[in-house]
């Protein structure tokens, strides 16, 4: 099940969906330090979410979600872009730094110590939800009619 290599799109998505407490705790544990500059200071904003009429038809604007984002540049040249759901400048900064360090020799360490645990939490939550839903699935009893 566990994938060995995440694409950048995948790791950015894992970061975006992670909850701040776990992200922050895991980040503090790896203790990577490096000089960096902000290209875009962490900021809080919204994204307008779209749906489709009838699920498959023309798109329409459903409503907004809060999103925080940040982008950093390491002194060694790597650029990091972080997006995270909700309002957390700290989370956005960590996400951007993780993205930047994933392009350095720290890649392995970050995969093991941050991305893997975050992904596991996410998968476990999804599985728990699915299992609770499964328990409410209806079993219809049908009676065979006598002719």
């Amino acid at each position: 099940m566990q994938k060995k290599n995440w694409s950048r799109k995948e790791w950015l998505s894992i970061l975006a969906k992670s909850d701040l407490d776990s992200l922050s705790t895991l980040w503090k544990k790896v203790q990577i330090n490096a000089e960096y500059e902000f290209f875009r200071k962490p900021e809080i904003g919204t994204v307008m979410v779209r749906g489709r009429s009838g699920g498959t038809g023309n798109s329409f604007n459903l409503g907004e979600i809060t999103v925080s984002r940040c982008s950093v540049g390491l002194q060694t040249g790597e650029q990091g872009y972080g997006y995270i759901q909700g309002r957390s400048t700290e989370g956005a900064t960590i996400a951007a730094l993780v993205d930047a360090f994933m392009q350095t020799s720290h890649k392995k360490l970050i995969e093991q110590k941050i991305l893997k645990p975050l992904d596991a939490i996410h998968k476990r939550n999804k599985k728990d939800l699915a299992s609770k839903a499964e328990a409410t699935k209806v079993d219809f009893f049908t009676l065979a009619r006598k002719s």
Binding site: F38, F39, R40, K41, E43, G73
Partner: peptide, 11 residues
């Protein structure tokens, strides 16, 4: 980098 720098630092 020139395309990334130069934004507001205190928006």
């Amino acid at each position: 980098k020139s395309s990334l720098r130069g934004g507001y630092t205190n928006l």
